[in-house]
Amino acid sequence: MIYTVTLNPSIDYIVHVDDLKLGDLNRMTADFKLPGGKGINVSRILKRIQAESTALGFIGGFTGNFISDWLKKENIQTNFTTVEEDTRINIKLKSEKETEINGLGPTISNEEMLELKQILGNVQSGDIVVLSGSTPASLRQGFYEELVQIIKEKEADFIIDTTGADLLNALPQAPLLVKPNNHELAELFDVEFQSVEDILPFGERLLQDGAKHAIISMAGDGALLFTSDGIYQSNVLKRPLKNSVGAGDSMIAGFVGTFVKNNDPVEAFKWGIACGSATAFSDDLATADLINELISEVVVKKIR
């Protein structure tokens, strides 16, 4: 089983405004609300590629009910930890420029943290847990490390999609996959990249520090896959860009949903590219039809 963990989910309230004027009255041209949160996005894309998952995390209030109801309609299994305060709302304002206003998230009590850890303690050997996204400000420092320890004790695998200290601290625990983008990787090691070649030693360093696989996304330069057998680069698929939110989560879903079936990281990488690109070309997360249309266009070559 694949489990996804979203510690700070949200409702993403997407608002389109033509010719936004700050300090004045603006009228929406369109709006819609979607369940948000990186792990939740992974579960939704996994469903589209016929890979089952169970979504875990903290949800609360009427906003949490919105997320639970939506995932139920999509036939996605959940085992959320209910918290007292409301799940946050994030505003994605789309005008001439895209602006995001993200909520803080609820305060999580020690009892609620313990409940989530007890739920996670049900994972078994052979399961994969996807840990992704930010943490509510109320969570104690190192909470991801506590979750990783539970996963390792159960002899399950984990993927971690976060940045900074949480990512660095997870590397010695041998994550199945890490997925920083090129900017996050540069920040992680306090360097600057001028070319794809500059990235390669630091992608390899992620493996040296413990990761089993690493994907580095590079926007217009495609993405890199680092494995023990070599380094691979994907092409860039061409369609009008509609949505930058959720593309990285979709890439992880494509990878893990394929990897559990065939244990082939290169084939899993191809599906990751197709899923991530399909979301980037969609208003919401990718549809199964678009993913299947794009997979034939993905080209991956070994570069080292």
Rank of each mutant, 00 (worst) to 15 (best):
G36S: 07
G36C: 03
G36Q: 03
G36I: 00
G36A: 07
G37K: 00
G37F: 01
G37P: 02
K38F: 04
G39A: 09
G39I: 03
I40Y: 05
I40R: 02
N41W: 02
N41A: 07
N41F: 03
N41K: 07
V42Y: 01
S43T: 06
I45A: 00
L46M: 07
K47T: 08
K47V: 02
R48E: 13
R48K: 15
I49D: 00
I49E: 01
I49L: 06
Q50F: 13
Q50R: 12
A51M: 04
A51Q: 06
A51P: 00
E52R: 08
S53Q: 03
T54E: 04
A55H: 03
G57H: 02
F58G: 00
F58V: 03
I59M: 02
I59E: 00
G60S: 05
G61Y: 02
G61S: 05
F62T: 11
F62G: 09
T63L: 08
T63V: 13
N65Y: 12
N65V: 12
F66T: 06
F66S: 08
I67N: 01
S68M: 14
S68T: 14
D69N: 15
D69H: 13
W70Q: 14
W70G: 04
W70M: 14
L71N: 07
K73P: 04
K73R: 15
K73H: 14
N75R: 14
I76D: 01
I76N: 01
I76P: 00
I76H: 03
T78Y: 07
N79A: 13
N79E: 13
F80N: 02
F80A: 01
T81C: 12
T82P: 05
V83R: 03
V83H: 04
E84R: 14
E85F: 10
E85I: 06
E85R: 09
D86Y: 09
D86N: 15
R88A: 03
I89A: 09
I89P: 04
I89T: 14
N90Q: 10
N90L: 05
N90Y: 02
I91R: 08
K92H: 10
K92Y: 08
L93C: 09
L93E: 07
L93T: 07
L93P: 06
K94Q: 11
K94A: 04
S95W: 05
S95Q: 08
S95H: 06
E96Q: 15
K97P: 04
E98L: 11
T99H: 12
T99Q: 11
E100C: 10
E100N: 14
E100A: 12
I101Y: 15
I101W: 11
N102H: 11
N102M: 10
N102E: 11
G103P: 08
G103E: 09
